[in-house]
Computed example of a mutant assay.
Amino acid sequence: MSLHMIRGEARYHEIAVVLAEKISSGTYAVGEKLHARSNLATTFGVSAETARKAVQVLVELKILEVRHGSGCYVLSKEKAAAFAAQYQDVRSEKKMREELLQILEKQQQDAVRAKAILYDLEASAKKAENILLFTPFTLLIDTTCPHLNESIGALNLWHHTGATVVAIVRGSTTLLSPGPHAILKAGDTIYFVGDAKARQRMEAFLRP
């Protein structure tokens, strides 16, 4: 009986293995007559044909022998033990395959979940970036600024920094939406919007 023949684990194969295990354990001794097929069918709750197939498996493996007119007898304990061990190896292999498939399936599910989380993170980051674009930064113009008394237009701030000045606070005066002619003076606090790096570029440009 080859491994391929018992991979399917048909019911009669399972019964054959149980009988082989009983023989290898000494429950049935070599030379002992086995129960009639009808009794085996009742014991295992199967049809007489299934019981016959189980016995036939063991006969083909020379674990049992049929004596015509007498019945079925145990022939080899060693072959019974080998068959039972072989069957257990196949079942172990099948179990490992099933566990591997479960692991791979879980990995696939985790990958899908990870992709969904990544998509949510990207969406959140994009949303935060969009909010940042409309959240003004502030920068104090001090006496070290190399562009004092120059206009926003002349400095071409947006070209150099990607930032848009939305207000200038000078003392108690606030100039909203200053045009290109607005002059930068020491002590001014400018409010500007831009991307995440706009603040760094503004500081580098106005506070080198």
Rank of each mutant, 00 (worst) to 15 (best):
G45T: 02
L118K: 11
A85S: 13
E150C: 06
K95C: 00
V90K: 08
L140I: 14
R7I: 09
A80K: 02
A80H: 01
P180E: 12
K115P: 00
A36K: 13
I117V: 15
F83H: 09
K127T: 07
E49M: 13
F134R: 14
C72H: 10
K79C: 00
L206R: 01
Q200I: 10
T138H: 14
A204R: 14
L176A: 06
I103A: 13
V90G: 03
H13W: 07
S92C: 00
V59I: 15
A186W: 02
Y28P: 05
F205C: 04
R37H: 07
I152M: 08
Q107E: 15
K185D: 03
M1C: 06
L176G: 04
A198T: 05
P136K: 12
L61K: 08
Q109Y: 11
A84W: 00
D142S: 13
T189A: 04
T144Y: 03
I63M: 01
E150L: 07
T50A: 14
S38V: 10
A167W: 01
K53N: 14
L40K: 05
E32L: 08
G71P: 00
P146Y: 03
G187T: 07
V193N: 04
P136I: 02
H4T: 14
A80P: 05
N149G: 02
S38H: 09
T50R: 12
F137K: 10
K126F: 00
I23G: 04
S177K: 10
R97S: 01
H68G: 05
A128Q: 12
R97P: 00
G187F: 08
L184A: 00
T143G: 07
L157V: 15
L155K: 06
V18A: 14
W158D: 07
A36D: 15
R113K: 14
S24V: 00
N39M: 09
R201P: 03
D110H: 10
P136Y: 08
S92Q: 11
E93Y: 01
V57C: 05
V90N: 00
L118V: 04
Q56I: 01
D120Q: 15
E203I: 11
I152F: 06
L58P: 02
R67C: 00
L34G: 08
V165Y: 03
K33H: 08
E65H: 10
P136Q: 13
A54F: 08
I190C: 06
S24R: 09
S47D: 13
C145K: 06
E14N: 02
V17R: 13
R67I: 12
E65S: 08
A154Q: 13
S151R: 01
R170K: 00
S2H: 04
N156G: 11
H35Y: 10
K79S: 02
H181Q: 12
S47R: 06
S47E: 10
L148M: 06
I6D: 04
K115V: 06
V57I: 15
G8M: 03
V66M: 06
V55A: 07
T144C: 07
Q102A: 14
K79H: 10
Y119L: 13
T27R: 09
Q107H: 13
L132N: 12
T164M: 11
R52N: 14
T173R: 11
I117C: 03
Q109C: 08
V46Y: 07
A36Q: 12
